[in-house]
C-alpha cells in the first residue's frame, strides 16, 4: 500500500516545478524548505565575507515582499475561519458542545434523577466493550445518561456512544443535538466501526419496541432483535456488558399509543403520557424519578467453532443476555423503595 503512496510526492514536485499548478500545494513545502535553507546558508557565507561596516545593514534587503503580500492576502481571505474551532469527530460528536452541556448532564445525573450507579468497577478494561441495556422512554435519555456515567466513573478514555433507533436519529430538531452528544444510528456498520476504533458502544437491542412500551408493560424486556448484538461482540472480539436501568421507564409513562394521527405525520406512533400532548412540548420533559443503573458482570464470548449450530448458539446467547438484564432490572426494582426516592 505504501508503494502506491510514494510516487505521488514526486509527481507533485515535478508538476509545480514546471509551474503548471494554480494553487500552492502542501506537498512542495519540503523541497521549498530545503531550498530556503540552502539560500540562507549562502547568504550567511556572503555576509561573513563582507567588511564589518556593511554586515549589519545587509540583512534588511532580503524581505520577500511578494511572498509577504501573498501571505497577507491569504490571511485576510481566511480571516476568522482558520482560527475558529470547528471540529466534530467522524460520527458528529462535538467536544465543545459536550463541554458546554456537561453541567446540565451532571445536574440531571446528580440532582434530577439522583442516579445510583452499581458495579462500575465491573467494566472490563482495557479496551472497548459493548454495553447492552433495556430501552425505555420516548427520547433516548437512558443512553445519554449511561454514556455520561461511564465517561465520569468508568475506565475508558473515550466517551462511549449510544445507539439510537432509526426514526429517533432522523427526528427533526432532535437529530442535530443527538449527533452532537454522541448518538449514533443503530446499525451493525456503525457498531463495528466504533468497536474497531476502540470506542465503547451502548446498544438497546429492544429497539423501537422498547421505546413503545406502555406503562403497564414497564420493566418487561421485549425480544432482542435478531441477535445482532451478540454477533457484533463475537466478530469484534469485545466483551458484552449487561446493564439494567431502572427509573427511565417511569420518566415517560406512556398510557397508550395513538396510531392514526401518527401515520399522517409519518411517525411510527404518538405516545400519550399524562402530560404529552396535553401540555405541548412542555409535556416532553421527563419526570424526576429515582434511577438505579446496575452494571453486570461482563460476558466474554468465544467465536463458535463449527458453524452448523452457530445460529442456534447465537439465539441462545441472546436470550441468555436478555434474562441477565431482566434480573439486573428486577434487582434494581427491589433496591428502590419507591419510584420517587
Amino acid at each position: 500500500m505504501n508503494e502506491a503512496g510514494e510516487p505521488r510526492g514526486d509527481e507533485m514536485v515535478s508538476d509545480t516545478a514546471l509551474g503548471t499548478e494554480c494553487d500552492l500545494a502542501h506537498g512542495e513545502d519540503e523541497s521549498l524548505d530545503a531550498l530556503r535553507l540552502a539560500l540562507e546558508d549562502l547568504r550567511s557565507e556572503i555576509r561573513a565575507q563582507l567588511p564589518e561596516s556593511r554586515r549589519a545593514s545587509s540583512g534588511a534587503n532580503d524581505v520577500d515582499w511578494l511572498g509577504l503580500f501573498e501571505e497577507l492576502r491569504q490571511r485576510l481571505a481566511t480571516l476568522g475561519m482558520k482560527e475558529r474551532f470547528a471540529a466534530v469527530d467522524e460520527f458528529g460528536m462535538d467536544v465543545q458542545a459536550l463541554a458546554r452541556s456537561r453541567s446540565i448532564l451532571d445536574f440531571l445525573l446528580d440532582r434530577y434523577w439522583r442516579v445510583e450507579v452499581v458495579g462500575v468497577s465491573q467494566l472490563p478494561r482495557p479496551g472497548p466493550c459493548l454495553m447492552v441495556a433495556n430501552r425505555s422512554g420516548l427520547l433516548p435519555y437512558d443512553g445519554l445518561m449511561l454514556s455520561h456515567i461511564v465517561e465520569r466513573f468508568g475506565p475508558y478514555a473515550e466517551r462511549p456512544r449510544f445507539m439510537v433507533a432509526d426514526w429517533f436519529i432522523t427526528l427533526p430538531f432532535a437529530q442535530p443535538y443527538l449527533a452532537r452528544l454522541g448518538g449514533v444510528r443503530a446499525c451493525r456498520e456503525n457498531a463495528d466501526r466504533l468497536l474497531r476504533k476502540g470506542v465503547s458502544v451502548v446498544a438497546f437491542p429492544e429497539g423501537v419496541k422498547g421505546a413503545a412500551k406502555t406503562f403497564r408493560e414497564r420493566y418487561q424486556l421485549k425480544r432482542f432483535g435478531r441477535g445482532g448484538v451478540v454477533r457484533a461482540a463475537i466478530e469484534n472480539g469485545v466483551p458484552l456488558v449487561p446493564v439494567g436501568i431502572v427509573g427511565a421507564e417511569e420518566a415517560h409513562p406512556v398510557l397508550f399509543k395513538s396510531h392514526l394521527p401518527a401515520r399522517m405525520l409519518g411517525l411510527p406512533f404518538i405516545p400519550v403520557t399524562p402530560t404529552f400532548p396535553l401540555l405541548g412540548p412542555l409535556g416532553l420533559l421527563p419526570l424526576p424519578t429515582k434511577w438505579i443503573v446496575s452494571i453486570g458482570e461482563p460476558i466474554c464470548l468465544e467465536p463458535p467453532g463449527d458453524d452448523a449450530h452457530e445460529e442456534l448458539l447465537i439465539s441462545r446467547l441472546t436470550e441468555d443476555l436478555r434474562l441477565r438484564i431482566q434480573s439486573l432490572v428486577d434487582e434494581g426494582l427491589d433496591r428502590r423503595p419507591s419510584v420517587w426516592s
Partner: peptide, 23 residues
Amino acid sequence: AEFGEPIYSTKEAWISLVAARRL
C-alpha cells in the same frame, strides 16, 4: 490506502472555496 492521503480535509477544502470567493 491506494492513492495516498488527501492533502486537504473537508474543513480545509471548504475554507479554500470561501477564501477564493472573498479574494
